[in-house]
């Protein structure tokens, strides 16, 4: 078996995998940043006092979570142009990833905020801190500590989901495997190489989380 596994071809395709690895990295990073912004916004809308805005946020979160990412991606890729909105492939991909993960992050952030004891918030109110100051100094720092592990989980899902962007012909890691497969007919080598690079990103994320968690050790009081 193994003698037919062709390492030489992998080395030959390494530059392609390298550039596609970088593409997956930056598409995912951009998607994640967008998801964080959208998720924070959606969460504050959802738990805010304004009823109508809360309903809009809840509708967004529900509809994303109840439909496949692939359908969402195709909607943005094929649907938006038919409505007259033209975006580049990369922008479409990032938008789909950000909107999708944003809905999950909104719920993660909400759970994090709600895990903070009401008593502390009350103590902050009693000492005269404003809503913004309470958010900035009391709620968010702790919510981030509590939500870091589930956020890491979502970030890993997002990286894996970015594989779907190969379907709108973005040159990312999965696409690299496809290219190698179709040019040399070596699916084992091609997709295994893709998988190794995904594993690399996974360990990077895990390491980053462990590092930041160490600095937040006292927050789990």
């Amino acid at each position: 078996m193994l003698e037919t596994f062709n390492f030489r071809v992998i080395f030959e395709y390494l530059p392609l995998f390298g550039s596609c690895f970088l593409a997956t990295l930056w598409l995912s990073a951009a998607g994640l940043v967008g998801a964080l912004v959208i998720g924070t916004l959606a969460c504050s809308m959802r738990i805010g006092r304004h009823k109508l805005i809360a309903i809009v946020a809840a509708a967004y979160i529900e509809s994303i979570r109840s439909t496949p990412l692939l359908v969402q991606l195709f909607f943005f890729y094929f649907g938006l142009p038919s409505l007259g909105i033209r975006l580049s492939e990369a922008a479409t991909g990032i938008l789909a990833l950000a909107l999708n993960s944003g809905a999950y992050l909104a719920e993660i952030i909400r759970a994090g905020i709600q895990s903070i004891s009401h008593g502390q918030v009350e103590a902050a109110v009693a000492s005269g801190l404003s809503y913004i100051q309470r958010m900035r100094h009391i709620i968010l720092p702790q919510a981030i500590g509590v939500t870091l592990p589930p956020m890491l989980g979502q970030a890993i899902v997002l990286v894996k989901d970015s594989a779907l962007l190969s379907l709108i012909s973005l040159p990312e890691l999965t696409r690299a495997g496809q290219i190698m497969t179709s040019e040399r007919f070596m699916p084992a080598e091609g997709f295994l190489t893709s998988a190794v690079f995904y594993l690399l990103i996974y360990y990077m994320l895990k390491w980053m989380t462990a590092w930041s968690q160490k600095r937040l050790i006292y927050m789990q009081a």
Partner: peptide, 8 residues
Amino acid sequence: QQFNLYPH
């Protein structure tokens, strides 16, 4: 009663 200190 419950102190309500900021744990972080």
